[in-house]
Design a binder for these strands. Structure first.
Lengths: 190, 190
DNA sequence: CCTACCGATCGGTAGG
DNA sequence: CCTACCGATCGGTAGG
């Protein structure tokens, strides 16, 4: 139990450092200092540097995927599902800012089979997201644009939040959510 | 002259490596191999690793800023200027893919005054971009949303191109340009 | 959980 | 442009 919470503390400190400096520029000694240990002591709680990255990447990909499955299962219409997905990404970007970092940036430092596995989780998520977009287009609720372009535009639109948003700023989560939804669904033009 | 072109070759190889593996994970020995030199010989052409990053970041920021000033000076309406800016970013992402990497990701590895200088160039660019958005809103051509949110949504929307777009793919530059413009200006909803 | 330490690799320099 | 090499730091292990 104490062991487990120390491990969790290490994972969280690592996620923070990976976000601030990037995976490669973060040393095990940086990480050790952040959790008040010597570098060698880290290895009583974790298997190695890449294992940390792996766990961060897998767990966050899984969280996105789980949320996606919940949204898929709901009886809402396509537009509502799309709004739920936008809300999900904003929420993840704001409440657990490392999830976006893992999902977007640092996963490429995984190697071999772990890289493949992460890519698999991500591809699955994207496939499901595209499915919803496609269904919206088939039903005439969304413009018939390329689903890949639409998907990445939506995902990317949430990406800047992770290095820009500060909870103490002048915009609330709800306001940002509303404006982003308007821009993505209704466009910037009047 | 030969000196200068070798320097240019090094800068381009570095930009490619920084994009593929990130600045920190790229070693001077990687870079040397890419241009068929020994690591020590690089220093006849460049001052050091960070100088390379600096030059890549500065030059690309300057290119964005120059293009911005050209667009500002044109007699077009706001919507046309906005379309020109979207086109600029797509073009930069596609034709010089490292410009987006520098602009978005690797600049944070600059240090001290160089980091400040880059941030200054970037802020200037963003300020001008927001100005155009604000003018569009004032004239009633754009929806009155937060200019910061609108700006970053636009900039981010172009960001995925740099790790997704392949010139040999099934979409031409013009098609992508058109669909992105539709999504951003008119929205995804019918 | 620490001290002590490993071989490998880092960015960079000396000297020719 | 190379060989040879520098001190610093890397991820990680041994042993207690």
């Amino acid at each position: 139990m104490a062991e487990h919470s120390k491990r969790q503390e290490i994972l969280e400190a690592a996620a923070q450092l990976f976000r601030d400096k990037g995976y490669s520029a973060t040393s095990m000694r940086d990480l050790a200092k952040a959790v008040s240990l010597k570098a060698s002591s880290l290895y009583n709680h974790i298997g190695g540097k890449e294992e940390i990255l792996r766990e961060i990447c897998y767990s966050n990909a899984q969280r996105f995927l789980d949320a996606m499955k919940t949204i898929e299962a709901q009886p809402d219409g396509i537009i509502e599902k799309l709004q739920s997905l936008i809300r999900l990404h904003i929420q993840m970007a704001m409440e657990d800012i490392t999830s976006v970092t893992a999902f977007n940036d640092e996963w490429r430092h995984l190697s071999g089979e772990h890289l493949d596995h992460f890519r698999g989780l991500r591809k699955d998520y994207e496939r499901r997201f595209k499915q919803i977009l496609q269904e919206g287009m088939d039903k005439g609720l969304l413009k018939p644009v390329d689903t890949t372009i639409a998907l990445y535009t939506i995902l990317s639109s949430m990406r800047w939040l992770y290095d820009w948003y500060r909870p103490e700023g002048r915009k609330t989560k709800e306001e940002i959510e509303q404006e982003l939804t308007i821009i993505l669904l209704k466009g910037l033009a009047v």
